[in-house]
Nucleic acid binder design. Structure first.
Length: 224
DNA sequence: CCAGACGTTGTT
DNA sequence: GTCTGG
DNA sequence: CCAGACGTTGTT
DNA sequence: GTCTGG
């Protein structure tokens, strides 16, 4: 699940949001994104130490530092909260390279009993940004250097349960600080990886235009 | 010892 | 069925 | 996540 | 890098 995200808000709104969570304004130019698939770029911020935070665009699909071939990243876009701390592909990033991924919505495909799939968008009613628990890695050197990331999924909250059996981990407020804290213990980190309790999201059906990731415009958000 | 995997989803 | 491209 | 390809020879 | 399977 959660194989698509969005981040369409304008630079001023994004800058204001980043400042509100202690991140200097993103230096890179960014265009509105309504339909972001795996292997495309997500905006992630992390804590370097002494509470300094930094944001960057990172490719979605984690390539561990030890990978011989970066194509492994295609398989590593989602980690499960239940196993992320111990999985060989994720555990070192879980210990040392946690981050928060800024989005303003994500998509889930609801499967009906007859097998048909209905795309749904999950967002705040005002499309304000929020953050997902993420992991990141650097791989390779020079021209080959890649910076990649993955999201973490958990069980659904009341909003998501009718739609799907998994949802991304959404962190707000003190949980954001706790997730980024370099000194955090595994147990306390694990306690953060729970279904979103904030009750600030809504879900609505959107057009199947979102199925095709090359459709990256507002039509992907239109309610059906 | 070396070779090969390292993930999730959903469907059967 | 499985992999790659988006 | 979904959509689309899944092959080779030899020609432009 | 580290673990599992052979």
């Amino acid at each position: 699940m959660c194989g698509r995200a969005s981040l369409a808000l304008d630079e001023d709104e994004l800058t204001a949001y980043l400042q509100s969570v202690g991140v200097p304004a993103a230096p890179t130019r960014r265009r509105p994104r309504y339909n972001i698939p795996p292997q495309d770029d997500l905006l992630l911020f992390t804590e370097l130490g002494d509470h300094r935070r930094e944001s960057r665009m990172m490719r979605w699909g984690l390539v561990p530092f030890w990978a011989k071939d970066p194509s492994i990243g295609r398989k590593l876009s989602i980690a499960r909260a239940e196993t992320v701390a111990t999985m060989p592909a994720f555990r070192s990033a879980f210990k040392k390279r946690r981050g928060l991924i800024v989005i303003d919505g994500f998509f889930e495909w609801h499967r009906d009993p007859d097998g048909s799939k209905t795309p749904m968008r999950i967002a705040r009613p005002d499309n304000a940004p929020f953050t997902l628990a993420g992991l990141w890695e650097t791989w390779g050197e020079g021209d080959k250097r890649l910076i990649t990331c993955a999201i973490i999924t958990t069980t659904p909250n009341d909003l998501m349960a009718p739609i799907h059996d998994r949802m991304p981990v959404i962190l707000t407020g003190a949980a954001q600080d706790a997730w980024l804290d370099p000194t955090a213990k595994v147990g306390s980190l694990q306690d953060l990886l729970i279904p979103d309790p904030s009750d600030t999201l809504h879900a609505y059906e959107v057009s199947p235009l979102v199925n095709r990731s090359s459709n990256d415009g507002p039509e992907c958000w239109f309610p059906v």
